[in-house]
Write a protein that binds this DNA or RNA. Structure first.
Lengths: 196, 196
DNA sequence: CTCATTCTGTAGCGATCACTATTGATTGAC
DNA sequence: GTCAATCAATAGTGATCGCTACAGAATGAG
């Protein structure tokens, strides 16, 4: 029942074509990416695209899910650092470098595309969890509004994405990241560990 | 030579129609605003629109210039406050309230529209001037990278605009503004005035 | 009044949008 | 081989894009 495969095999690699679609949506956004430009960039004719990916919306969902998964990997890696400040600093630094990386579109698809608010919320939730741990560890002052702080960090990264799209350089993005880091509240000035 | 005006007078108020165009471009962006939606919202037929405003691009330029002028008024008013910190705090507070104001589209047209990078640079330059004055006044530490700091503030406001478009509340925007204010460097801890 | 001028609305221009009917090519099953 | 199944390419669907030709309506100048 399962192995009744037959017929002409597809002439293109689906994952490669999807990666091209990610790059298109990333660079131009959902609305400004047309089926014609997608098929041209992917090297696939419209009927093949529709057979392989459904319609434009489903292709975008698949592409954005792939982009989201990669983004979460990076965020999780940064958040795994032992100190809360170091984790945030790493996340901001990685963000700056990713937004200005040559060979990829400037900015961040997740932070730019209006349709991906749910994914932005998910990233924010991840940051909140890490900040909460930072409060428990004494890296951040008790009573810190971690939700507000995470929202601020997402806003800064979104601003970094926009600045990258405006042609901002890596140095400028790193400067924004450094300024944002200064907004993190410090724990009690004379105690580095919560043992006191 | 000059007063040879004749012919049928236009049936709509040009400034009112332009205000409607501002609202449309503000809410939906340049690309997502069609001539059809503009004419419907403005209560004007396409030929009248083209006769009064040229083409879509020139209408957008006129609308964005009007929006830009109003924005600059607000920024200038905040920047005129005596203390640099107060000036920045006012700007961030005004921004939060403007981005969440009921009756107007969420977010900021200047900070959202990719085509308006030059206007964003102009706002940043205004902030740099104010921060430079803050350094001279002793409100900010000597040697402060005012350009980097202004760039950070613009990035935060852009993030606030995006968050407002995602449905963020005024309280959330004010929280982002408060966090950003904490990133401002403080002058020498024991001197409030540069006379010492 | 007449007449030139300017605006108005209808109607439609070519181009592009997302999407697909159709035909022919290429495969494995038998 | 024969056949069913699957994909590829051409071509074109109706809808919408920005924009405009055209003809009629409304004005001031003479």
């Amino acid at each position: 029942m399962l192995g009744h495969m037959a017929g002409r095999p597809r002439s293109f690699d689906r994952d490669t074509a999807l990666a091209v679609a990610v790059e298109q949506f990333w660079r131009h956004g959902y609305d400004e990416t047309s089926i014609a430009s997608l098929t041209a960039a992917m090297g696939v004719t419209p009927p093949s695209l529709y057979a392989a990916f459904g319609d434009k919306h489903r292709l975008f969902e698949e592409a954005s899910a792939l982009y989201f998964a990669r983004t979460c990997e990076g965020v999780d890696r940064a958040m795994a650092l032992p100190g809360a400040r170091d984790a945030v600093a790493r996340m901001l630094d990685d963000t700056a470098r990713a937004h200005a990386a040559p060979g990829t579109p400037p900015g961040c698809m997740l932070l730019t595309e209006p349709r991906l608010a749910a994914q932005r919320d998910a990233v924010q939730a991840t940051i909140v969890e890490r900040l909460d741990r930072g409060v428990r560890d004494g890296d951040l002052p008790p009573g810190t509004d971690t939700t507000a702080l995470a929202r601020f960090l997402v806003a800064v990264m979104r601003g970094m994405s926009g600045h990258a799209r405006d042609g901002g350089t890596l140095d400028e993005l790193l400067g924004i990241a450094a300024s944002a880091l200064a907004a993190l509240p410090s724990p009690a000035p004379s105690a580095q560990h919560p043992s006191a």
